[in-house]
Simulated scan of single mutants.
Amino acid sequence: MHIVCLNGPNLNRLGKRQPDIYGRETLADVEKKMADLAGTLGCTVSFFQSNHEGELIDRVHRAAETNSAVIINPGGLTHTSVALRDALAEIADGPGFIEVHISNIHAREPFRHHSYLSPIAVGVIAGVGTQGYLLALRATVDRLQSTGAR
Results as ranks from 00 to 15, higher is better:
Val124Arg: 14
His79Lys: 02
Ala139Gln: 11
Val70Trp: 00
Asn67Val: 12
Gly54Met: 06
Ala89Ile: 12
His113Leu: 01
His2Ile: 11
Ser118Pro: 02
Ser81Asn: 02
Gly129Thr: 06
Val141Thr: 05
Asn51Ile: 08
Gly123Lys: 15
Val70His: 04
Ser115Ala: 01
Thr80His: 02
His106Lys: 13
Glu25Met: 15
Ala121Val: 10
Cys43Gln: 10
Ile3Arg: 05
Ala63Arg: 08
Thr44Glu: 12
Ile98Thr: 02
Leu56Glu: 02
Gly42Phe: 01
Asn67Phe: 14
Pro110Phe: 13
Asp36Pro: 05
Lys33His: 11
Ile21Met: 09
Ile21Asn: 06
His61Ile: 13
Ser68Gln: 13
Gln49Asn: 10
Gly54Ala: 13
Tyr133Gln: 06
Glu99Ile: 03
Asn104Val: 06
Ser50Lys: 09
His61Leu: 13
Thr140Glu: 06
Asn7Ile: 08
Arg138His: 11
Glu109His: 07
Ile120Tyr: 06
Gln131His: 15
Ala107Ser: 14
Ile91Gln: 07
Ala28Phe: 00
Leu11Cys: 05
Asn73Met: 00
Leu144Thr: 05
His52Pro: 04
Glu90Ile: 15
Glu99Asn: 04
Phe111Pro: 00
His61Cys: 10
Ile105Arg: 03
Ser103Gly: 13
Thr40Ala: 12
Ala64Ser: 13
Ile120Pro: 02
Tyr133Ile: 09
Glu31Arg: 15
Arg150Val: 13
Asn51Trp: 13
Val128Cys: 13
Gln145Pro: 07
Phe48Asp: 11
